[in-house]
Amino acid sequence: MMKEMDYIRPNSIEEAVQILSDPGRRGKLLAGGTDLLVQKRVDPPDYDCFVDISRLSEIQQIRVSDGVFYLGAGVTHAVIAQDPLILKYVSFLAQACLSVGSPQIRNTGTLGGNVANAAACADSLPALVCLDAVAHLRSKRGERQMLVTELVKGPHETALETDELITHFTFLQPPPGVKTHFIKIGRRNAQSISRLSIAAMGRKDKNGNVDFIRICPGAATPRTMRFTEVETYLMGKQACEELYVDAGQRMAARMVEITGVRWSTEYKEVALKAITERVLREVLG
């Protein structure tokens, strides 16, 4: 007979990592459950115990101090989408979280879960990567930090150890005047999985030249990363339509360089060009 599944709800991060490191069981972190409970229907679980961290207040804070954002991994998409600090300084993260699933999914799904599940189409990734967000990981062995772009190595593949959990993310508050924007293309507006998305941060100086730019497409490359070559190209140039069109072509070319020509390339090239232009218009316009 199959071993009965266990369920534990630790009262602290300390307790959670203790359970995860217990050699006598194979614990699986449960936060929002919106990915995990779907996977459980499809694949037989390789764990024998749910470790429910959905009520840990330690991982549910959002705050800014000394210009550093602190964002708990257990915060739900619904909370991020409405948080005044997020909306004020990094509104593209709110846009991204608002584009996730449905009200039901956003009420339970968490930011940490979105990153740890590491779907190629995870909606929060482009904005987090644009922000150079750092994931803070905890295990019984201690703490370590890793850039989100490095933590998520590819579709459903992360550098997380099985006894580790993401406690929070940190990133610098964008400099004054920097605008952020996120665009997602899905098959419909509601409940859609990203076909392609893009996040950008930008600012121009008083002469109209680009003096801050970061740009990161989502679901375009196996690892979500900033296209720094394009950023370097844009820096210092006069912000105008021709520049956005040019940047769109460069983004598409860079994507193909990384992925090679795939079945979806014909579509993605055109689409990435278009959303690059649109996102640049928003942050530099």
């Binding site: 369920y7 709800r9 449960l30 459950g33 409970l37 429910d52 009420n107 339970t108």
Partner: peptide, 12 residues
């Protein structure tokens, strides 16, 4: 809060 009960584990 509105949730999908198919994605909530009973003990939660």
């Amino acid at each position: 809060k509105l949730v999908d009960s198919c994605l909530v584990l009973a003990p939660q």
